[in-house]
Each structure stands twice: as C-alpha cells, then as structure tokens.
Design a protein around this nucleic acid. Structure first.
Lengths: 243, 243
DNA sequence: TTAGTTATTAACATATTGCAATTAAGTATA
DNA sequence: TATACTTAATTGCAATATGTTAATAACTAA
C-alpha cells in the first residue's frame, strides 16, 4: 500500500518543557540548616481544556519551526526564560486521546538552570508562572509518589496536573537521575563557579540518596579556582569550575 | 497570544525504526574463527523522494494510531516482523526541510532481536528488505565513520541513506552503547537461553571494546540452567537465562 | 596419546566507593 | 581570650568492582 502524502494523517505537535532548578527550602523550626530542594516551574492554564489547572510550559509547534526552537520560544513567551540548557526528553503520543481537542503529539523537553540565573529574567516572567517544590516519598521518581507544593504558599499542594504532565515530569526526573553520574548535566544546575557542596547537593537531590566521597568521585570533572565563598559564615569554601 | 487549535500548525508525523541484530560474519580466509558482527535491516524505497535509496523501515502515523503501534505496524508491513522489542529513541524535527514533501516530524525507534527469532518470520519479509553489516572505524558510533555493507553482496557499500537516517542510526547505536551496561537491553539480542560468550559478544559489539571478566560483571543478571550447547565442537558451554 | 580449540574458574593487582575519623578555618558566646 | 560550634576539606581503611593473566576443564582432530 502506497502512502499518500495528503492531509489525512496530519496532526498537531506540541512541546512541553520540564524546567528544573534547586533552591533553599524555608528554614525548619527544628533545624537551622538551610536544606536544599528541587523545584519545577509550572504555569496556570487560562484556556480549555484544564482551564485554571497547573501545567508545564507548552505550546504548539509552528509549521516552519524547529522543535527545539518551539521549546525555547515557549519558555520565552510564557516564563521569560532565555539561554537556558534544553534537552529533548521523550515524545508522547501513544494515548491518542491525551488531548481532548484532537490528536496531539507532544515532544517533552528538560530545561535546567541554577536559580540565580533564572531570577535575572524573572521580571519578564508571566504572573501565572510559579515555582513548586518537588517531593517524592521514595528514592524513585514514581508518578504516584510525586507531589508538588507551592513555593509561595505551602498550603497549596497540587494533586492533579493538566494532561499527562505528571508522567512527563516523572520521566524527566528519572532521565536526569539515570544520567547524572555518567554525564555532565549536573553542572547546568550550578553557577559557573561553585563549591563542592553545592554540586554535591544537586547530585544528591536528583539521585535521592547520598553520594560518599563526592570530591573524589568528581575529581576529574572539576578544577580548582583561586576564588572562595565570601566568609560570612564559618570556614570559606573553595570555588571550582567544570573541567 | 492565544493559541488557536486550527489546522495552521498541523504536520505529518512518521516513525523510523532502527532494527538491529547480530550474526556470524563470513569466514575470513586467514582466521577460522566465526567472528560476529552487527547488522541493521534496511529497505529499498520505491517512491520519491530518495526513490531506490536504502532507508529505515518507516511510515506515517495514522490520525488515530498510537506512535508505538505505528512503528509495530511498519515492521509488520514492510519486513514481516512481529513481537520484537521496541523502544523509542528520539524525535527528529529540528530541520524543517528534512523531508522535501513538507513538514515531517519523525519519531525514531530501536528494535532489537536475536537473528534466529527474526529468521522465523523472514518468509513474510519484503523482497526489498535486506540486512547490512554495520562498521565503524572508531570505537564511537560517529555519523561520518559509519558504513553499511550488504550481507548478500559485499561489494555493495552504502554511502548515502535516505533522509537523515544515517544520523538516526548513529543515535540508535550510541543510545544502546550508553545504556547496555546499566540496563538489560542487551538480553533482547540473544535467545532465551544463551551462553556467556554469546551475551558477551553482544555487549562488546555495542560497546566497541572488550569487556573483561564478563561472567563476573554480569553475574547477578544471569542464572545458570542445566542445558548445554550440543557438543558438536570442542567443550560444551553452559546455557544461561536472564535472572 | 597428543596437540589444538573453546569454556570456565581462579588468582592477583588496581581502581572505585562506602564509611568514619581527622584536621582546618571560620563564627558565636561566655 | 578561651571554648564550643559550624562548615570545609583531607585522609585512612575496608569492601566492592574491575582489568589482567594464568590455570584448569572438556571436547575434537589427527
């Protein structure tokens, strides 16, 4: 059977971006230590379906637009982000009814950046965009175990996200978890200059476990600089950069 | 700017499948040992563009068809394969002109199977499908270094493949290479019962290097059976199965 | 019987990692 | 100023994993 290149098989293609970063959690009464946590950027939808629901920054790919360019554009338009690390995650299109409006194939992307870099552009961000803490009750990033808690209002806990975005987020977290020890993706979540502790925290948050002798393990991926954290507290730490 | 769900952004979506297996290479005059090699299944196109060129088994996704189902269907239709391991690879759509006919997003898939399993269905295979040896002059699967040599006619060496299929193949090989030591994908390339040597060969072909003390490394992934290779040559080898 | 081939295990060196202790350099406070 | 406290960074040791080589086992072929 010849395949005719007509319109009968045309469908909509969208990109969905999982924007991840880390930040200091609010100080716990019991412990004075500034614990770090994982954050994800979500936007509140203002149209059907899922109107009012929180969702990943997403949008349709224009007919003459590269996929990656669409992901970048949506980050620019919806949350004012630019020049951020992006990698393709997975394509979602096995459930033909994943979007009630019609057949939509969605290309998932992962975006990573240190919080400082993102804050620079935050004034341009949409008012409907907000950071949420990512929590998981297991060391695995399982769909059922994921929860999202508002950074601004800890009483706001999202249990349902638009479309299949919960699954996309779980896939993104597992992707990073699986490759962080074997690749250099972790460096996208710290500044150009970073302390060993900062980088270690990123790795441990993604892995959901501690990493022993981190300095030794990462030794050939990082290089000392002559800069130090300013000594406002305790012993100053040496700043490193990626080799 | 609201996104209108009309037809202006609709495009064609296709699946491209990289079918990989291993087989015995023809006996070399100098060495009697039956060396193994990697093979890929390609089909000869019978329509424009790239009419007459070799290409990956591929085709357009129907409007109401899951992506994975489309990949399965194309393997059935074009090369008579069924019940074969399939995993999604990557989606190709950054070059808006990758198909001269219009905007086409292609979802790449990887299919793996031992040659014996594939041969069972070979009678149903298209006459225009053929296995090719995959060679690389480096230990990396680089696009420039890949070459494809016909299994049936060693003088037939493909230097150009249809569309961006050469890149898709390189991506597929690197994907398997990167995950074979940390996952169980390698088992899809051997039979249910296999010798240590057979599994080791699969790993070494994908990695492009030797793996020392393979039995020890894979020890917790395999389990002994009471079956042995039939003693037609030399010492019989114990057959294992996946744990 | 002996040499040749493949399979399998073992022995040893080296590399990596988990774990715990130690030293270093700052702050806070009595 | 002395002491306790906090964080940073290094070191030592045990346990595990891997690279390398050798030894042993089971069969074929001459």
């Amino acid at each position: 059977m010849k395949c005719d290149f007509s319109t009968h098989h045309r469908m909509s293609v969208a990109t969905d971006v999982v924007v991840l970063t880390t930040d200091n959690k609010p100080l716990n009464n019991k412990r004075k230590v500034a614990e770090k946590g994982l954050q994800i950027l979500l936007v509140k939808r203002d149209e059907e379906p899922y109107n009012g629901c929180w969702a990943l920054p997403a949008g349709f790919v224009n007919f003459d637009e590269p996929l990656l360019e669409c992901a970048k554009r949506k980050l620019r338009e919806k949350v004012g982000l630019d020049d951020i690390y992006l990698e393709q995650l997975y394509s979602y299109g096995d459930d033909v009814n994943r979007d009630i409006r019609g057949r939509v194939i969605s290309i998932g992307y992962i975006a990573l950046a240190p919080k400082e870099k993102i804050l620079l552009n935050s004034e341009r961000a949409s008012k409907e965009a907000e950071w949420f803490w990512i929590e998981s009750s297991t060391s695995e990033w399982e769909v059922d175990m994921l929860s999202f808690i508002s950074v601004l209002d800890s009483s706001l806990k999202i249990t349902s996200l638009a479309f299949d975005h919960r699954m996309i987020i779980a896939d993104a977290l597992n992707r990073i978890k699986n490759k962080i020890m074997y690749t250099d993706v972790g460096f996208h979540l710290v500044n150009e200059l970073f302390t060993v502790k900062e980088l270690q925290t990123v790795y441990e948050l993604m892995l959901g476990r501690q990493v022993q002798a981190f300095r030794r393990v990462l030794n050939d991926k990082i290089v000392e600089t002559e800069h130090w954290t300013d000594g406002k507290a305790h012993r100053p730490a040496r700043l490193f950069k990626q080799r």
